[in-house]
């Protein structure tokens, strides 16, 4: 195991994670790509130390491990597909709104605002009821439908 490579992987992950938590879609795509590079390197280093090219019949002791290479190769291609998809999203977002930033979900914010409003209403009502408590106690129970239970 090589310390330099481990540190490189860590650095790539740090930068990728940092960019993932941004609001600009372009930056998020770049972050994902960098994260992908880190992951590929992680896969490769999992195969052990560097060695010769894995060709059939070579001495296993001196060649590098072919399996992580195959996995990393798959990962590279998939990262490419995902990057393309996100870029298309950024492009569409730009066409639609002249903007490639990811805003907070409006529906979620509306819901949170509604809950806040409800709490305020209740607090106000409770203050009012506390003030009129004596009157409420004297209120008679009328005869109406829905009596017992």
């Amino acid at each position: 195991m090589i310390l330099v490579l481990a540190c490189t992987i860590g650095a790539l992950y740090t930068i990728g994670a940092w960019l993932l938590m941004q609001r600009s879609l372009t930056r998020i795509v770049i972050g994902l790509a960098i994260l992908g590079h880190g992951a590929n390197l992680l896969l490769l280093t999992a195969g052990g130390r560097a060695g010769g090219v894995p060709i059939a019949g070579a001495d296993p002791a001196t060649t590098s491990d072919p399996l992580p290479q195959a996995l990393a190769l798959t990962a590279i291609v998939i990262t490419f597909g995902v990057s393309g998809f996100l870029l298309a999203m950024a492009y569409r977002s730009w066409r639609q709104r002249r903007d490639d930033t990811v805003e907070d979900d409006l529906e979620d914010r509306r819901l949170a605002a509604a809950v806040r409003r409800l709490d305020q209403d209740r607090a106000r009502r409770e203050t009012r009821e506390a003030a009129h408590g004596e009157i409420a106690d004297q209120h008679e129970v009328g005869v109406g439908p829905g009596g017992d239970g």
Partner: peptide, 12 residues
């Protein structure tokens, strides 16, 4: 982000 990076390096 720093935590993620350090974690992955150590994990490696």
């Amino acid at each position: 982000s720093l935590g993620t990076g350090i974690f992955v390096a150590v994990f490696t």
